[in-house]
């Protein structure tokens, strides 16, 4: 029986099996048995937890002399991740927002040589590309092939991949942590507090930042907008040498996810 049919029965009162989560399974006492309708305990709100997903490797792939690159567009097709079987910027990350910023970094220069590439984020052995124009999976197929070719040619050339100026700009993890924490405390959290939200810095690896969104931000339908237009902008404006910014919030978990 489909859910729609079950729900329609629920609203017509013909199926007592359909219940709200947390309601008691047993039948409710008759009104005459109950001292007061207001004395009934509210349904228990269950906490949603996440079980680990077990990745079953299809086949073991050892190290290869060949440069292997795999493309994976994001679910919303806004960006495409290219995963390479060797490091591009080990231990660090960097966002090239435009062609000018790529000057002196052969890897980013080669990617920007491909038409319609908008930004490039490199982190360890991945390059994440955004593009202008149409963004369907089929639009990424051709572009990812060109970007993959550009990455491969640069790697084969064997030169430094990232400008020495950029590497020199990146301070220690402790400095990155202190400065990002300051932005969170003075700009970001006061901004989201009005919606009951709270941002927590969970990790700094090199210049890569990982945060968690809590309170009203967890599971909020506007969380992605807050992350990209609010938090990213605030971090990058105040701490220009910050690289990738990740949100590790479990937006479907906890007690009050938006989509429940």
């Amino acid at each position: 029986m489909s859910v729609l049919k079950k729900l329609s029965q629920m609203f017509s009162g013909s199926d007592s099996k359909v219940q709200q989560a947390g309601e008691a399974v047993s039948e409710s006492p008759k009104p005459s048995d109950s001292p007061s309708a207001f004395a009934e305990e509210p349904p228990v709100r269950r906490r949603v937890i996440q079980a680990p997903v077990v990745i079953e490797e299809a086949e073991a792939s050892g190290p290869s002399d060949q440069i292997l690159i795999k493309a994976e567009p994001s679910r919303d097709n806004e960006q495409c991740k290219l995963m390479v079987n060797r490091p591009l910027f080990k231990g660090h990350s960097w966002l090239f927002s435009n062609f000018e910023e790529a000057a002196g970094s052969p890897l980013a220069e080669s990617v920007f040589s491909v038409d319609s590439v908008e930004t490039v984020l490199i982190h360890d052995s991945t390059a994440v590309v955004t593009k202008t124009g149409a963004k369907g999976v089929s639009d990424w197929e051709a572009l990812a092939k060109e970007v993959g070719g550009a990455l491969r040619r640069t790697l084969e050339a064997g030169a430094d991949l990232v400008s020495k100026d950029i590497i020199a700009k990146i301070p220690s993890e402790q400095v990155v942590q202190e400065e990002i924490q300051k932005v969170i405390d003075t700009e970001v959290n006061p901004g989201v507090a009005g919606h009951g939200g709270k941002i927590t810095l969970t990790a700094i690896t090199g210049n890569t930042v990982t945060i968690q969104m809590g309170g009203g931000c967890q599971g909020c339908s506007a969380a992605d907008l807050t992350l990209k237009q609010g938090i990213h902008s605030a971090f990058r404006k105040a701490v220009p040498y910050v690289g990738a910014i990740y949100d590790e919030t479990d937006h479907a978990g906890g007690l009050n996810p938006y989509y429940r």
Partner: peptide, 28 residues
């Protein structure tokens, strides 16, 4: 299909069993 690992449930909890379909990937 998705395989989930160990988890312990009680009267206060439920576990997420939804996973979006895998993203398409290809060699370039």
């Amino acid at each position: 299909s998705v395989v989930f690992g160990a988890v312990t449930l009680d009267e206060t909890s439920e576990v997420n069993i939804w996973q979006d379909p895998p993203l398409p990937t290809w060699d370039v």
